[in-house]
Design a protein around this nucleic acid. Structure first.
Lengths: 137, 137
DNA sequence: CTTGAAGCTCTAGTGGCTAGAGGAATTACA
DNA sequence: TGTAATTCCTCTAGCCACTAGAGCTTCAAG
């Protein structure tokens, strides 16, 4: 059995965040010691690693709840749902990359200015120039 | 003079968000009509376009406040600060792109699985597998 | 002059945590 | 066994950048 601090060290999830996940229903309320401190088993540890990884992949806690539920309903044909969630997320991620790349190009341009005075500098003008807006609006 | 709705239409910033920016001190409290409704001039319109654009570039409201202050202190040698903020931001954006690309690769892998049953599917296992974690931890 | 859209202020909620107060339990070591 | 340091507990409140809704007033078109 692991204390919450041990769990935190092993999963890389901060202590208050572990408690927060419990509150949000992502993990069950664990057993307690005689002095009312949380004691976790290996299953919960694995579950938290899953959560940590999925969070790094950018899934929302709601998505993760779904994914966990699916993985629990062993054998049920939720396969498609899992792929749907992952696929939707992949699309969102690709869109984000595209947007960030355009952003990078613009930032590179405006931050490479070498003029000596602010009035010569493109940064502020660029930020003001509506015609240079990235994205759709 | 423009009503808040007109401003919203012209800048693409939602009405409550314009009021929020006023509350946060990014724009000054505008004149009011006899019936206490906000009336904006072209200067504020331009300022809001600046804000909108900078937000799209991912600058925080705090950064934008700084940028606006610099652009107001006309002629002062704040040039370096502007570039520092933009440069810092550029570095952050590049890091984000790198992370997202690794993420995309992993998502592509896990969502391309074609197995018929959940137990054959790599998605959940992949999410659980700590060894496949992206990033540093 | 009426009606419906748009405006006003105010409060509270969102996601995903994070920080701090004030106290209790555990652990390491003498 | 004593004690001091560390970890843990609950609870409340704060973060960012909005967003939603209630309940009311004003504006503009016909």
């Amino acid at each position: 059995m692991f204390s919450i601090g041990e769990v935190s060290r092993r999963t890389g999830i901060k202590v208050p965040t572990v408690r927060y996940y419990e509150q949000m229903g992502l993990i069950a309320a664990p057993e307690r010691s005689s002095g009312n401190q949380r004691r976790y088993d290996r299953n919960t540890l694995r579950r938290l690693e899953f959560i940590r990884h999925a969070r790094e992949l950018g899934f929302s806690l709601d998505d993760i709840r779904d994914l966990l539920r699916m993985s629990e309903g062993a054998g049920t044909p939720a396969h498609d749902d899992v792929h749907r969630i992952a696929g939707e997320h992949l699309r969102a991620v690709r869109a984000r990359i595209e947007r960030l790349k355009r952003l990078e190009a613009e930032l590179t341009r405006i931050s490479s200015c070498k003029a000596g005075t602010l009035s010569d500098c493109a940064v502020l003008e660029t930020l003001s120039d509506h015609a240079l807006c990235i994205g759709e609006h």
